[in-house]
Design a protein around this nucleic acid. Structure first.
Lengths: 130, 130
DNA sequence: CTTGAGATTCCAGTAACTGGAAGCCTTATA
DNA sequence: TATAAGGCTTCCAGTTACTGGAATCTCAAG
């Protein structure tokens, strides 16, 4: 398989696949013409990566998960640990965003948003006390 | 004021303040010794930036908000538009994270997490049906 | 006079790609 | 057979918003 077909089938753009090779996540062989020659296992790996990335795992986590996946003797506890840590990072991020959202939506609601210059959003950012 | 004091009072680290000058967000004067000489207005601007950044506004948004802030003839509608767009970006991000969270927490719950290699998390990432 | 704190500049690295240029390789068509 | 289109290659640069570190300079205290 050439890179185009793999891209199509894995849903990962060619550029990204080349990047993943650069950083050692996949190691496709090469055909005589210098083109990358992907096997089914490479495709499988890339699809794995695509799903892990879609769940927000970092590249480093992905590397880790992939090696656990390929290790017959892994302990599921190791996988679970990675996932749990990521989950709690997601929770933190959600909490942070929700707090921003809270403040921001108050501000937006309080701004009349017309042609007058008076604006509580700017006042707040400027630090004006109430 | 030297950069250290401004950093202290604005809560923005010196490195970041220098960076903000690099990209033209603040333009402190210079004293004879080459040190940056900040006025109260610079400090005020930096505090403004700190608050905007804390609400998740991008540097570009900040630049925009700052210029609106300094424009006596702004229309509050412009400010509100920036804020609303950011708010909806935040909402999108929260939704995306919550969807990740959903999937991931199911997976985590379904993994027994012991010394056995069997792991639903990996199975899911590998694309195993059911 | 020396020492230490705080200031300066410049370079590089972070995360994970993405865009673009220049140039092969292959295939189809005129 | 010439050529044009499309896919592939590599390499360089840019993105976001800083942050760390090195080498050097300035200033105040003892």
């Amino acid at each position: 398989m050439n890179i185009g077909e793999v891209a199509e089938r894995s849903g990962i753009p060619p550029k990204t696949i080349r990047y993943y090779e650069d950083i050692g996540l996949v190691r496709p062989q090469r055909s005589g013409n210098g083109y990358r020659a992907f096997r089914e296992t490479d495709l499988h790996k890339l699809a794995f990566l695509g799903r892990a990335r879609a769940l927000g795992f970092s590249i480093d986590d992905c590397r880790n998960l992939l090696s656990l996946y390929e290790d017959e003797n892994r302990e599921s506890a190791q996988v679970k640990a990675v996932a749990q840590e990521h989950l709690s990072a997601i929770d933190d991020k959600i909490a942070q965003l929700q707090s921003m959202r809270e403040t921001l939506s108050h501000l937006v609601r309080s701004c009349h948003g017309d042609d007058r210059p008076d604006c509580p959003i700017l006042s707040d950012l400027a630090g004006d006390k109430s």
